[in-house]
Design a protein around this nucleic acid. Structure first.
Lengths: 214, 214, 214, 214
DNA sequence: TATGAATGAGTATTCATTCAT
DNA sequence: AATGAATGAATACTCATTCAT
């Protein structure tokens, strides 16, 4: 395009403001999330976010400390959604075994429908797991916590051989993360293959932990 | 130092040429690999590679199509080393069960001692798995092939319940990849924790596949 | 901290208002002076001043025309303090010769204990000497005036060879300024060296002007 | 102007190359020096230098490490010229006393005809005195050295009371620097006033050091 | 085979300032 | 009297890449 930088900004600037219902912070966050999912981690830039919403790059600094802060918020929106999905899945079933199953599939579904997000959260910037931007609850702890809760429930009800809850949970997590992350990188697996694999993985986890429940 | 970029290149240019025994392609590749492991994926740049070996950035284009091509070769060196490690491990044992164990630990060791490489190969640019640069054999297929070979041997000798070899192998791979990739991202696990987890994972895999071998 | 700029302002905004006894103009000026002495001329910014006192940058424009105006006032506070120091030194002694000595050392001490200020006043923005912001008396004239007064007194009492008072004063000023400004720039002299040099300079000035007083 | 950034560059780019006789390094340095003298220390920017010579900002980095390195070279060109002027003045006279006089006026003349340079060298970035970019001799040491040489000669020939050569020299330097730097900052003195003052200063220095030579 | 010279696009960030409220 | 929202311009710097030689 043969438009000056400022011209391009003005054009975009015209087309905005109507969609600017909520506050700008949300607008930025949405745009950022969208662009992030479109361009991936490496090509994500503040400038593009600004351009996309028709504001000056400077403006973003009024709502987010810096690029990383914005990215952290993008990630955290993922954590929240992720946590909610798992929580919902957990709530749909009464039994530890079924719960593990449901939560597992919720995990899988989240990863498959928000692949870029999943990668940001668990593969590229996993250290975000440790930060909590203001106004957010630590949903990650909750997410992993669900797993631990289920395992504990399993042990309490005699379905799972007693052992270190944290280790058990980590093992389960690693299992599902393995399939999922393979599925997400490099088109190694089709969705169907990934699904089939995950189903087997789930079975294996169940067999490993709930064997004597039969 | 207060040296211009071009000056710095000249300085480096002086100190080279003697180590330039083999052809330049290898020299570049080695330097690239080294710098890549040092700086990581995001901070890897052609200029630094050029600087490191005392050549102009331009020169690199005589041997590699572009940055990505160079990176592909870096990855492939990883695949070759990876393949050899697994192959060696395989060769040390006669039994399928032991072989799976040995190969698994070789896998773990490779990932832990070449974390950046592992991430490039299997997490960041896993699509490289599908490309084969000229002059390379598809060593990846070989690597995954080892797994398939072991599984097939297990089935043949009646230790593993017959089934889809490819699926079985993928399942095993996903399991180990899960622990390893968790261990590599974001300081979520210490080396010791990762090792412990991997041991458990190995056990689980064995139980799942070789259960009736006892 | 991961606080947005506007958030940080709000936080600061909370903790203020109690210290805001006098009018805001003074508060701003104090903070500006402080920050200026801390960060130096080049890194002095309105935003930081605003942040420091818990007000919006905009607010500063209600009390000062622009950045330069604020800086001018900062400088003028320096001039006032400077003038007072010299005046005090002058008052401590009855004799022209002693007065010159005392005033000289007051000059030196001011420069050494307010180096950033001295540089602003006499080296970076010496044109400020010519401006008088509203509500200020031209204290600079007073400062230089002291010198002229002393010289005049010296001439009147026969201690100094009659001559152009203004020129004599300028000469003296240049002498002390020479040592002081060398001492302030670039770590060329230690404090002790500067002090020694200044003492010699003072002697030279005395010899030059009060020679026949003995 | 309503020109795109790249358009403006191209326009300038057209008008160059003919003046580009020597190598680009010199061209850049000249332009930098010119712009520096025009805009002063604070408004000196790499972009403008690039624009001025019709090259991309990037190009400058091929010849200078960074902004400061360029500035250092600008300063050093000043030091060289300065040193040569003093050296020449020194060479014109056989006698210490005359030499001091000649060198003093050379000093004054340099400062008056390269005011911005003088400020960079001795007032803003006096720490440059300590650095020597490659390919340059430390001309500053030489410059101050001339002073010391003269003083030593004066002592040797019995014209100057024996004493610490370095201190004597520093004292003289401070004296001339005092007048000069006053003259350069803030339009406090006209050229004529400065000149008159300097003449007096010179006299004073002579009287102080060569008194008994008569 | 290799270089030297140069580009163009892009990056995050900071600043003084304005305007409507 | 003070703010919130936003701007526009600028900055240093780095990168992959190309082209003529």
């Amino acid at each position: 395009m043969s438009l000056t930088k400022s011209e391009r900004i003005k054009v975009a600037s015209a087309a905005r403001r109507e969609q600017q219902k909520g506050d700008l912070q949300s607008t930025i966050l949405e745009a950022a999330t969208h662009l992030f999912e479109e361009n991936g981690y490496e090509n994500f830039s503040l400038r593009q976010v600004a351009l996309a919403i028709g504001y000056t790059p400077t403006t973003i600094y009024l709502y987010f400390k810096d690029k990383d802060d914005l990215l952290l918020h993008v990630a955290y929106d993922g954590f929240r959604l992720f946590g909610e999905s798992l929580e919902n899945a957990y709530a749909t079933k009464p039994e530890p075994s079924e719960r593990l199953d449901a939560v597992g599939w919720a995990y899988f579904d989240f990863a498959m429908s928000h692949p870029i997000h999943y990668q940001l959260m668990f593969m590229q910037r996993a250290e975000f797991l440790a930060c909590k931007p203001e106004g957010y609850e630590s949903t990650m702890d909750n997410s992993f916590g669900i797993l631990e809760r289920i395992v504990q429930e399993g042990i309490d009800s005699g379905l799972i051989t007693p052992g270190d809850v944290r280790t058990y949970s980590a093992l389960i997590w690693a299992s599902v993360h393995g399939v999922v992350s393979l599925a997400l990188t490099g088109n190694l697996l089709t969705y169907e293959e990934a699904k089939g694999l995950f189903a087997l993985q789930q079975e294996a986890v169940h067999r490993a932990f709930f064997e004597h429940s039969k």
